[in-house]
């Protein structure tokens, strides 16, 4: 589904990612861990098409298409979804309105008919129930006045409604207390499927207690320095990031 080969990315003149290789197959969950400043968020931004990053070498292929050539909205319509670390507020625009507009732009791109207001309402109420959210949520302006946990839950709701193929979770666990973390993780687990893949970027192991990854990669100094199964995360928790960082230096 996703293939990253020898990816080098710079911000201005400063190289951030220095040769990333990653293969994600349908249905897999990959966790990317690493210390602050290792390039985790840069990776999520480059995958989703945020401006300000230059791919200097290597390529990203998504479903046999060159992802780097696509505008961010095209990537989204092709099924790439980024759950933001810091979801923005859009005053005056209701959640339900944003979701309907987003869903229809995606459906249009895929050659499907747009959903009308009634069908959409049925669909979204079902998703809201699934995520155990309050329906009032839908009529509030996007993220305006939301708590940290509500914002993150809102990202998962959007993910559930838009049904992407590749979900990138950028530090979705940051700023969440344990209860909120559980709710978010349950939300993610509820939409797992054999043809939907996840790339979870996280600083801490605790998210992985609730969402079991198939693979764990450790990012340091712009490179993946170690890959393994879920046990790698536990080892990291135990020994700290200096363990892999030192290993690389040695």
């Amino acid at each position: 589904m996703l293939s990253i080969e020898n990816l080098h990315v710079s911000v201005g003149d400063k190289p951030i990612l220095k040769g990333i290789n990653l293969q994600v197959k349908p249905g897999e969950i990959h966790a990317i861990m690493g210390p602050n400043g290792s390039g985790k968020s840069t990776l999520s931004h480059v995958l989703s098409g945020k401006s300000g990053y230059t791919v200097t070498e290597g390529k990203i292929t998504y479903e046999s298409k060159d992802l780097t050539e696509m505008a961010p909205e095209i990537r989204a319509r092709e099924g790439v979804f980024l759950a933001f670390q810091y979801p923005v507020e859009i005053p005056g625009v209701s959640n339900i309105y944003l979701l309907k507009a987003a869903l229809n732009s995606i459906r249009k791109h895929q050659g499907l008919p747009e959903v009308d207001a009634m069908d959409f309402l049925t669909l979204i109420k079902e998703k809201v129930r699934l995520l155990e959210m309050d329906e009032k949520f839908l009529y509030r302006a996007v993220n305006e006045g939301f708590s940290g946990g509500e914002k993150k839950r809102n990202e998962i709701l959007q993910m559930a409604v838009l049904e992407p193929k590749l979900c990138i979770l950028d530090e979705t666990d940051s700023g969440l207390d344990i209860d909120a973390l559980k709710v978010v993780a349950e939300g993610v687990n509820s939409i797992r499927s054999p043809d939907r893949s996840f790339v979870m970027i996280t600083h801490y192991q605790r998210l992985l207690d609730y969402i079991k990854p198939d693979f764990v990669h450790v990012l340091a100094h712009g490179q993946i320095v170690k890959s393994g199964g879920p046990e790698l995360a536990l080892e990291l928790e135990d020994k700290g990031y200096s363990w892999v960082e030192d290993k690389k230096a040695a």
Binding site: R77, L82, L103, I106, L162
Partner: peptide, 14 residues
């Protein structure tokens, strides 16, 4: 903000 725009684009809007 650029962030607001990017957020909307990431959800599929032009």
């Amino acid at each position: 903000s650029e962030d607001q725009l990017f957020f909307c684009q990431q959800r599929g809007l032009s």
